[in-house]
């Protein structure tokens, strides 16, 4: 890359000898919650793009809409919906955790505990959702 397009210095040849400031994530709860938040956010975003288009088929014809929404009711898609709901439930609870950590100093100090609470709430929510959803998908 030419020097004119980068305004940032190039990484030094030798690894830095000083320790980084305390602001970088290093593979613990804070990093994993961020990685999962990012992946789930992207996944939901792309689902939403498709979902607005499939819903728009109600303006084409009842037949067109039913044909596409019918694919949501197949076993494979039923499992996909479990993954989608799992992603959005994690993103939602962890998003609330991020907000608490930003605004409330107790939560900032206890962000690890809050991460395990997010996991626990996710498990409880999925236990409520998955059996019921699979019963709907696999019965007729």
């Amino acid at each position: 890359m030419s020097a004119t397009t980068t305004r940032t210095p190039i990484a030094p040849e030798k690894p830095a000898t000083h320790k980084p400031g305390g602001t970088l994530y290093r593979g613990r709860e804070g990093m994993w919650s961020w990685v999962l938040h990012r992946i789930t956010g992207v996944a939901i975003f792309f689902f939403l793009l498709v979902h607005i288009l499939d819903t728009a088929l109600v303006r084409v014809s009842p037949e067109a809409y039913n044909a596409v929404i019918g694919t949501y009711q197949t076993p494979i898609m039923g499992l996909g919906e479990v993954a989608l709901v799992g992603a959005i439930v994690f993103h939602a609870f962890n998003g609330l955790r991020v907000i608490l950590v930003d605004f409330w100093s107790w939560a900032t100090r206890n962000q690890k505990v809050l991460f395990y609470i997010v996991i626990a709430l996710w498990v409880v929510t999925m236990l409520g959702f998955v059996p019921r959803h699979l019963m709907n998908v696999f019965s007729h």
Partner: peptide, 28 residues
């Protein structure tokens, strides 16, 4: 984000959990 928790969870509950769930969704 705070508002979306309510809106999206409500959307998923009505469309996936109530009655026959996803099997009940069609044009009608």
């Amino acid at each position: 984000g705070v508002v979306l928790v309510v809106l999206v969870f409500g959307h998923l509950f009505v469309n996936l959990m109530v009655g026959e769930g996803v099997k009940a969704i069609d044009f009608g």
